[in-house]
Each structure stands twice: as structure tokens, then as C-alpha cells.
Design a protein around this nucleic acid. Structure first.
Lengths: 176, 176
DNA sequence: GTCGACCTATATCGAGCCTATATAGCGTGG
DNA sequence: CCACGCTATATAGGCTCGATATAGGTCGAC
């Protein structure tokens, strides 16, 4: 999903500055399947404003840069819904960790187990943060998304733990 | 993982042209966690060649563009292993589908169920292709990667089927 | 109390990557 | 016989990211 559409989507839930949009995308619930950086958000908002899909009011602040609060227009809502209705782009997943594991045979064995351990710890952390968020009341769609991501992470974690156990058993047998 | 590193990795498994590298990345097993386009592969190979990490021999073909067959050098192997040893970039996942589901409340209900159905079918297809590939003999790392991706897709599919069933039940109750 | 670290808030630049397009002959199916 | 898809390379334009710049505010540590 391009940054334009992400911005429009977040603005359907309420007015926001570019900075606030960035924070929202980083939150659990979004972070696992959508991303956007400042370098793409600010130009996107400017272009959306030019096109009349978004309006801006500058709130002057003393001795601080103006807060440029963005509001989605009726045309913006229409454009957003239209873009969700047309065929969606494919999912894209990139995992440097899995890529590296493809070449585990070229790496020292102890480094591979450290990598695996670190990745497991990292996944555990993501999962526990998701489960904390699960307590808060949320919109239907948010619960759906969190549930899907949680299911995926839990399955990956299971798999990784089994693989680690296998590696340890093999190593122990070799040491005999 | 950047395209340079992806190219080097594939070349550790054998010589290849840019075109062949593209095909390899598209294959099941790679496609689910790494990507690269022609527009990034060709420049990457040229730069790797300049840097001495890759060597090229042009195989002239009659009435066709030369096949530029790339071979990884010893320096290239060292650089590749070194890049796998240093801290890996974070995983990145983008799912326009999950993003769209976040805004299901703004869309017509029947369109949402069509989206869900299409995504389920798509995931089923990916999973069955992975299970076919499972039959072929493969390197340790490839089995690990396929296993991880399979576990993730299977869990997502389970979750989606349950959610679909819930939606249908709710719809049936509403129709009463 | 004051210093460093972090937060709000905007913005741009360079680098990296993707999409679409161009070229060109060959094989295959309808 | 024609359209489509495959092999094979390459580039232009546009989108996105990461890093950096600016600038004052808050808050905890020492």
C-alpha cells in the first residue's frame, strides 16, 4: 500500500499532523504490515493537499514550528474507499534473517545459533507486545489484524523453538 | 537484505546471468522473504563487478544479446559472509490486504467477504506450492526456510477460515 | 541545578529500489 | 499466421527510506 493511501486511511480516523501519522504507523497493529517514513509522509501530504483530498490548517505555536493539522476531505474519503476497492497489491515480505539462514552452511555454527536465539527473543517480544495491546478495546478491523499477526508470529515462534531444540540435540550427540 | 547481498548469495550456489538471478529470487523458497527487480539487479551486478566481488564473462550468442555470466570471486565470498555476520536489518512485512481490513467498516460487506475469500484462495495456493516443493531434495537451510514460511501460512490460513466462518454465522443470524 | 537524552514537529537530500518500457529473436498454441 | 510468452539486457522516472538539520521543551540522573 503506498504512503498516500496509508495517510488517507489514518486521516479517516481523525485529524493529524505528519508527525502523528508517523507515530500511528509505528504502533503495534500497523507496524506489522504497513510502514512509512517522514521522507515519504511529508511529500505525500503536500501532494494530497494540492489534489484536494486533504485540507490543512496551520496551528501557530510559540517558538516551535507550526503544527500543520491535516483533515481528510469528502473527495479524499471517496478516493480512499475507491483505492481499497480496486485489486490490492500483493503482500511483500522481507526477512534478512531467513535469507541468512539459507546460507547457514557458510557460517560458523555458534554464530548461527546466536542468530536463531536473537530472532526467537525478538519474536517473543513482538508477540508479548501484541498480547498486551489485545487487552485494549479496539475496532473490529484492528482486532482482526492483530489476531492474524498474532497467529502468524505464534506459529513462527513454535517452529523456531522446535528447530532450536533439534539443533541442540544434534550438537549434544556430536559431542558424545 | 539489499539486492547486492541477494546477488552475492545466489552466486555462491553457482554462476548466473542477471536474468537467472531474477528467476531464482522469484522461485518458491526465496519469494516469500526476499525480492529483487531487474532495475536493481543489473546495476548491482555492474557495481559488484567494478568492486571485484564478481567477475563476468560474456558468452556471445547468435542474433541475441550476449549472456553475461557472473561468477563470485574469493573477495565476494568473504564480503558476503561478512555481511551475514553483522547485525541483520529488521524484517519488513507489508500487507495491503490486512491494511484494507482495518477499514472494513468503510466498505460494503459483500466486498469485504469477496476480499477475504480471494485472500484465502491465494494463501491456499501459496501453501500448496510450498508443499510440492517440499518433496524435492534440498539444502538444510532451504528446508528450514520453507518450513518456517509453511508454518506461518498454515497458521494464517487457519485464522482466516475461522474468521470467515464467524462472519457467515453472524450474517445468517442477522438474516433470521 | 544543570546536563544529556529524548520528545515534538517540519523538511530535504542522496541512495536504493520498483515499475514500466525498449529492444529483439525464438518457440508454442490456437 | 498471429499473439503471447520466454530469454536477455538495459534505462528513465518515480517512490520510499535513512540520515541529517533545525529548534525548543520535558524529565530524570547526578
Amino acid at each position: 500500500m503506498d504512503v498516500r493511501t496509508i495517510c488517507l486511511g489514518i486521516l479517516t480516523r481523525g485529524d493529524a499532523t505528519g508527525y502523528e501519522i508517523k507515530k500511528t504507523v509505528e504502533e503495534d497493529g500497523h507496524r506489522h504490515f504497513a510502514e512509512a517514513s517522514f521522507g515519504s509522509i511529508y511529500p505525500a501530504l503536500n501532494r494530497l493537499t494540492e489534489e484536494g483530498l486533504v485540507s490543512v490548517r496551520a496551528e501557530a505555536q510559540e517558538k516551535r514550528p507550526d503544527r500543520k493539522v491535516h483533515t481528510i476531505t469528502r473527495a479524499g474519503r471517496r478516493a480512499f474507499v475507491a483505492s481499497l476497492m480496486e485489486p490490492l497489491p500483493e503482500d511483500r515480505h522481507r526477512s534478512p534473517f531467513v535469507f541468512a539462514m539459507l546460507f547457514a552452511d557458510l557460517l560458523p555454527k555458534d554464530h548461527v545459533s546466536r542468530m536463531l536465539g536473537a530472532y526467537i527473543a525478538h519474536t517473543e517480544e513482538k508477540l508479548s507486545r501484541l498480547q498486551q495491546a489485545d487487552a485494549k478495546p479496539r475496532r473490529e478491523g484492528e482486532r482482526f489484524a492483530d489476531g492474524l499477526v498474532t497467529a502468524a508470529y505464534a506459529a513462527v515462534l513454535d517452529y523456531l523453538r522446535i528447530q532450536r531444540a533439534k539443533i541442540e540435540t544434534t550438537a549434544a550427540q556430536a559431542a558424545e
